[in-house]
Simulated assay, not measured.
Amino acid sequence: MTDFLTLARAALAERLKGENFEKTVSLRIRDVGNLLISGDSAEISDARADCAIIADQASFEKILAGELNPVRAAMFGKLRIAGDAKTAMKFGALFG
């Protein structure tokens, strides 16, 4: 487990308070690891999900810091979405 995954999990836990994702989201951070969002929690896990959001660590750091909008990141090729796009949009709404 890397320090970034631990920090990202904690940051996501704050954003997920009061949320309830009916479907699962996997954040796949290239060369680092995966986080699984389910319900209102984030866990370090390689489990499959309904939607996968794939990017490098630098892009996820900017998204979590509020410096990069996830929709804009996808438009410019900074992240890729696989699976259920509606779930990805709901997840992206957590970041403004």
Rank of each mutant, 00 (worst) to 15 (best):
E22D: 13
T87K: 01
M1F: 10
L68R: 11
E43Q: 13
Q57C: 00
A49M: 00
S45L: 12
D40C: 07
K86E: 09
R15Y: 10
T87G: 02
R28S: 03
R9E: 15
S59T: 14
P70V: 04
F4K: 08
E14G: 12
F76Q: 12
A8R: 13
V71A: 11
F60A: 00
L27Y: 08
K23P: 05
P70D: 02
I29L: 06
T87Q: 11
R30M: 10
A49R: 02
G39L: 02
S41I: 00
S41K: 05
L94N: 05
R28H: 05
L12R: 12
D3W: 12
C51G: 00
R80P: 03
A58L: 06
V25P: 01
K23Q: 14
L68S: 02
F76L: 06
A73E: 04
N34E: 12
F91D: 09
L36F: 08
I29W: 00
G83L: 08
S38Q: 13
A52W: 02
E67M: 08
I37H: 11
A10N: 15
D46T: 11
L7R: 15
L36G: 10
A10Q: 15
N69I: 01
L12N: 13
E67V: 06
I63T: 10
P70C: 02
D46S: 14
A13Y: 08
F91K: 05
T6K: 15
G77L: 01
A10E: 15
R48A: 15
G39K: 04
E19L: 03
G66V: 11
I37A: 10
A85T: 11
I53V: 11
E61T: 07
K78I: 07
R30Y: 09
E43L: 09
E22G: 14
N69C: 08
T24L: 07
F95H: 01
I81H: 01
L68N: 09
L12M: 14
G66Q: 05
A49K: 02
D40S: 15
L7D: 15
L64H: 10
A49L: 01
A65C: 05
C51A: 03
I29H: 04
G39T: 04
I37R: 02
K90Y: 07
A65S: 15
D40T: 06
E67W: 07
R80D: 12
A47P: 11
G39C: 07
R48H: 09
A11P: 05
I44G: 06
I63F: 07
K23A: 12
A13C: 05
A93K: 14
F4I: 10
K86V: 08
I44D: 11
G83R: 11
A10F: 12
D84P: 13
F60D: 09
L12S: 14
A58E: 07
K17I: 13
R30T: 12
D50Y: 02
F21K: 07
V71Q: 10
V25C: 03
A42G: 03
V71M: 12
A55C: 03
G66A: 08
A42I: 02
A65Y: 06
E43F: 06
R72L: 12
C51K: 02
A93F: 05
G96L: 09
M1T: 13
K78A: 09
K23E: 15
L68T: 03
A49C: 00
K62G: 02
A49Q: 02
G92H: 01
R72V: 14
L7H: 14
L5M: 10
L12K: 10
V71G: 06
A52K: 09
E67C: 01
L7W: 15
R72W: 01
G18T: 11
A8W: 11
F4H: 11
